[in-house]
Design a binder for these strands. Structure first.
Lengths: 140, 140
DNA sequence: TTCATAAGGTTACTTTTTGTAACTTACTCT
DNA sequence: AGAGTAAGTTACAAAAAGTAACCTTATGAA
């Protein structure tokens, strides 16, 4: 039993070595694409935007704003631009009045949402544990 | 071929429905534990701290600071406190002079790091694509 | 014809979060 | 007595995020 956990720890460390081991830790973030890309894609607001798009497939600006509860116009529009630039979603504007704009995932974005979903499922499963830990810690 | 992708999209949306579908989107973030827990654990600095701990198993404050390149004392100590409170890592202080403090993952933290690692592997695989997208977008 | 409305933002201004760098503590070694 | 060391903390500056008012363009009602 113990060794199963230990072996898992070792496997994990090996993968991390593959990822970080060859990188000189003195490198600034600009030279680490993983950090760069990750900081955009796994930002809290970006995550919520992408997940809701994964759910609805197509959403307009104001609907998105409604579902990504608490986001401001400013941040929503800024994140949508960046996520579009990075290729996760596409924007389609119809020249009607008032203007209609539809956001949806690209195929690339869809694959990312699937990964993201796994993480979110972990969160869903484990958040009670975390909240319990937090409470226990509060008493110290 | 098309239908495979389509079916995947539908499966994803179904999972998302399970996660978000029953939540009234008008709920503030305080009432959504998933958002709450996730905003701590998948913060950029937290992620890096946990991954490096997954790699080294035990790290002292100043070593962590060295590997989590660019983090400030202030933010590092703040994140370590929160991650400890949430149960991802443990702090062990030795009453020597100068003081020695060792940080390591809890077993719970270890399971999270494994999930996180999958996401990071995705990033590693796909960051070239994102950088390419970004460049293409820049030309528009 | 003037006015209200609507979607999808943008802008100016305030508040919060981060970053920077100097300082603290407590004991040991010179 | 003074320097050095690890693990932080603190005061102040810079950057990011939140807030709320405003813009655009055209349609339909008054």
């Amino acid at each position: 039993m113990e060794t199963v956990v230990e072996n898992q720890k070792i496997r994990t460390a090996k993968k991390l070595e593959k990822m970080f081991g060859h990188i000189d830790y003195k490198n600034p973030p600009e030279l680490c694409p993983v950090r760069d890309v990750m900081s955009v894609a796994s930002d809290q607001w970006s995550t919520l935007i992408l997940l809701w798009l994964g759910f609805f497939h197509v959403l307009r600006f104001n609907k998105l704003k409604k579902y990504v509860y608490g986001i401001s116009n400013k941040v929503l529009s800024q994140r949508l631009k960046v996520l579009e630039a990075d290729g996760y979603l596409k924007r389609k504007a119809y020249k009607e009045v008032p203007i209609r704009v539809e956001y949806s995932l690209t195929e690339f974005g869809q694959t990312y949402v699937e990964k993201l979903l796994e993480l979110t499922e972990w969160m869903q499963t484990n958040s009670p544990k975390v909240l319990a830990n937090r409470e226990k810690y509060g008493l110290l």
